[in-house]
């Protein structure tokens, strides 16, 4: 199945990004195709490479970054939501890119399902 993933919450306040990450990883392991992971609202903060949680905590920015690079999954951060929150190309972790909301709509059109993580 071709899946689009929408992440609407930041990496540490809310569980949404953790769950989205685990879901995406599991879907890839099961042989599904991830059309794109799109980060919106505070979800854009998942791309900030300056995130530096304590060493005994998971670092979701790194986890997403590695997953994206290992599996060639597109990790797209919404430009308007990113600008509002001070995220720009200089802050992006490897594997992320900034683009428009059209990328979210396109993921919905191309994919069989769009799975949303957030409230």
């Amino acid at each position: 199945m071709k899946l689009g993933i929408l992440v609407n919450e930041g990496p540490f306040t809310h569980q949404a990004s953790d769950t989205a990450y685990q879901f995406t990883k599991a879907a890839l392991e099961k042989g599904h195709e991830i059309v794109r992971v799109f980060f919106y609202h505070d979800g854009v903060n998942n791309s900030n490479k300056q995130a530096d949680p304590p060493s005994d905590d998971r670092n979701l920015v790194t986890l997403w970054s590695e997953l994206g690079q290992e599996h060639g999954v597109e990790l797209v951060v919404c430009v308007a939501a990113a600008m509002r929150r001070g995220i720009n190309d200089d802050l992006l972790a490897a594997g992320f890119k900034i683009s428009g909301l059209g990328q979210l709509v396109e993921a919905g059109i191309i994919g069989d399902r769009l799975v949303t993580f957030g409230d």
Binding site: H41, A80, G102, V105, G108, I109, D119
Partner: peptide, 19 residues
Amino acid sequence: TVYALEGLEVVLITAAFDQ
């Protein structure tokens, strides 16, 4: 919360894609 404001943006762009 910002959900309504940013959600409306998505609606307008989806319409621009002729969906």
